[in-house]
Amino acid sequence: MSHTAHIPSHRKPRRSASKIALRAGVAGGVLSTLAVAGASGPAFAAEPVTETIEMPTITADLSTQVAQSADATQQAANSYALQAEQDLAVAKAAKQAKADQALAEKKAEAKKKAEAEAKRKAEEARASRSAERTTLSTASHVAAPASGSVASVIAFLKAQVGDAYVMGGTGPNSWDCSGLTQAAFAQAGVSLPRVSQDQSTAGTPVSLDNLQVGDLLYWGAAGSAYHVGVYIGNGQYLDAANPSKGVVIQDLSGYPASGAVRVL
């Protein structure tokens, strides 16, 4: 036996491989557990963050809804305002139309009264001329009336008897048929057209059986007459006949007229 056998050894006892492996396994398990815990810890901590991130999405949706609602409200307000403007415009137009209608009716009534007054005066004047013609018809054709529109026409015509006939003549000493009648009726303030065709339609047509002094006679068709003269009563007329006769008084029986118009 060694003399050192009884001295305790200062060497640490060797650990068996199995113990070392066991301890390593325990340590590894602890480390694994810590690693898992560390890894899982942040995940759990991130959950509130995830919920906070979702809030802006909810807030944005709500803002969009509010904005859409505001737009709809504004559109409705604009629509109501436009409708109000249209209603006001319609009301104004209706009021103006009513005023225009009233004015038109007032003007029409005034025109109607004026026409009635003019018609009354024309009838009075016609009645006066008819009475004058009746007086002339019953009198001798050589006795010219002293006054009146018809009288002035007849007096002018008779004053031209003996003047020459010249185509296109309008006086004072030579005439054609329509030039003479135009000048004669001008004495009474009546403006006749220049040519016989137009003069034949310048007044109211009358029957040859109902002639009155001062009626305008025409030969040919109305509107295309080729000659005119003036009835002076007692079946006679005065005209600028032709170049061979000049201005003369003639009997209707020798050269009957085609028609007559009353211009006075």
Rank of each mutant, 00 (worst) to 15 (best):
G259W: 12
G246L: 02
K98C: 03
S140N: 15
A184G: 04
L217M: 12
E47P: 04
T4S: 13
S207K: 06
A37L: 13
A188E: 08
F156N: 05
K158C: 01
K106A: 14
I7S: 04
H10R: 12
L31K: 08
V153Q: 00
A91F: 12
D209V: 00
G38I: 08
S140T: 07
S130K: 04
F185Y: 15
P256M: 14
A146C: 07
K92S: 12
A260D: 06
S18L: 15
A108W: 05
E109P: 03
E51Q: 15
D100E: 14
Q101M: 10
L82W: 05
G38Q: 11
W219Y: 08
S207A: 02
G220M: 13
S147F: 02
L34Y: 05
Q250R: 15
A99P: 03
G254W: 13
T204G: 04
P256R: 15
Y218G: 02
A241F: 07
E132K: 11
A260C: 09
V247E: 09
D71E: 04
N234E: 14
K107Q: 11
T50H: 07
G189W: 13
L62G: 06
V263G: 02
A81H: 06
G246R: 14
G171V: 08
D100N: 13
S207Q: 05
T52W: 11
G168E: 07
S152E: 14
A188W: 00
Q96M: 08
E132T: 10
P8V: 11
